[in-house]
């Protein structure tokens, strides 16, 4: 999973809404992955274990093919052995993920986008031989599924869980989120932890009325901090609809919170200017909070093609390394 400068042809950039229209997670994921892989083949792929690490003296028992004859035939070219990187995908399936972005045609539900993105990553990781596990957050609890690397049934189980996932409920408390820590700390191997979420109600303190000094950070941010402190690579993929980013609503509307059920009346045209200013401030704050946790942050709009989003994620991850 170390692509460089990958650029997929436009023909492979399938709109997420089109993938959603397929209705088949496996088929949609294959489209995404094939588009992604087609982009990979256009670049030079160094291959696993090809990176030069150091020279050392030949010792009996070494494979003679590894001798570097240009270096006096005394040195063995030692390359970095390919190391397994377990991938853990955390999918937010709280109520707010049922938000339907109607800015495009056809509309797409936020959870569907997360579903396809998680499936594509699962497929890619499995194809590369990495261990993949899935954690879902909904109804105030965390559920995990894991499997052996290369195990066919592992991918099947994860895809099945993804396809049957329903958005409901709110964020779990500290105790429930501790499941994520347990899963990551079971062996001391460094993991890649991907969090796919809209971060609604996740980054705000549980007690808004408390003074700022005594206010505790949100449970999710605390968990991310602990995971990063354990040496894991944590990446937050922030999913937002275009109508959320640009507030494309019009007229007198009654806004209803999918997670809490709270309602707000207002004229969208009149609220828009103030809302966009406030949204910009809020997104910057959320990004900073995530970065402060030691995690990476990437914002993905729901009208962005899945393979393109995937590629941008991988490129930014490589650059970060």
């Amino acid at each position: 999973m170390t692509p460089r400068g990958v650029n997929a042809p436009a023909a492979h950039l399938l709109p997420p809404a089109t993938l959603a229209a397929l209705g088949d997670l496996r088929l949609a994921t294959r489209h995404v992955v094939e588009g992604f892989v087609a982009g990979l083949h256009q670049s030079r792929r160094p291959g696993a274990g090809g990176d030069f690490l150091q020279y050392r003296f030949y010792q009996p028992g070494d494979d003679p093919r590894r001798l570097d004859w240009r270096a006096f035939a005394r040195y063995v070219r030692e390359t970095e052995a390919e190391r397994e990187v377990p991938v853990r995908i955390v999918v937010d399936a709280t109520g707010s993920m049922a938000h339907e972005d109607r800015s495009g045609s056809p509309a797409i539900v936020k959870l569907d986008y997360a579903r396809y993105l998680a499936a594509a990553i699962t497929w890619l990781a499995d194809r590369q031989g990495d261990r993949v596990s899935l954690a879902t957050i909904h109804d105030g609890r965390v559920e995990t599924w894991s499997g052996r690397p290369g195990g066919r049934r592992t991918v099947e189980r994860i895809l099945h869980q993804l396809s049957t996932l329903q958005a409901a409920g709110g964020w779990p408390d500290d105790e429930q989120l501790g499941v994520l820590l347990e899963g990551a700390g079971r062996n001391r191997q460094r993991q890649l932890i991907l969090v796919l979420s809209d971060l609604h109600h996740a980054t705000t303190p549980s007690d808004d009325s408390a003074p700022a000094a005594s206010r505790r950070a949100a449970p999710l941010l605390q968990t991310l901090s602990r995971l990063a402190a354990q040496g894991h690579e944590v990446v937050v993929l922030h999913l937002l609809g275009r109508d959320e980013l640009e507030f494309r609503y019009q007229g007198e509307l009654l806004f209803e919170d999918l997670e809490t059920g709270h309602r707000v009346r207002g004229n969208a045209d009149q609220l828009r200017p103030l809302y966009l200013v406030r949204l910009g401030e809020d997104l910057a704050q959320v990004r900073q909070q995530v970065l402060d946790c030691g995690a990476s942050y990437q914002r993905i709009a729901l009208d962005q093609p899945l393979d393109e989003a995937l590629r941008h994620f991988l490129v930014s991850r490589q650059e970060a390394r």
Binding site: S96, H200, E244, D257, T260, G266, L271, R278
Partner: peptide, 24 residues
């Protein structure tokens, strides 16, 4: 007769509306 729209969160909207409604 306001059209109902379901959004992920009304936290920002309620902040904005409370300031805006006082003026509007």
């Amino acid at each position: 007769q306001r059209h109902r729209v379901q959004v992920g969160s009304v936290r920002l909207l309620s902040e904005v509306a409370s300031r805006h409604i006082r003026r509007i």
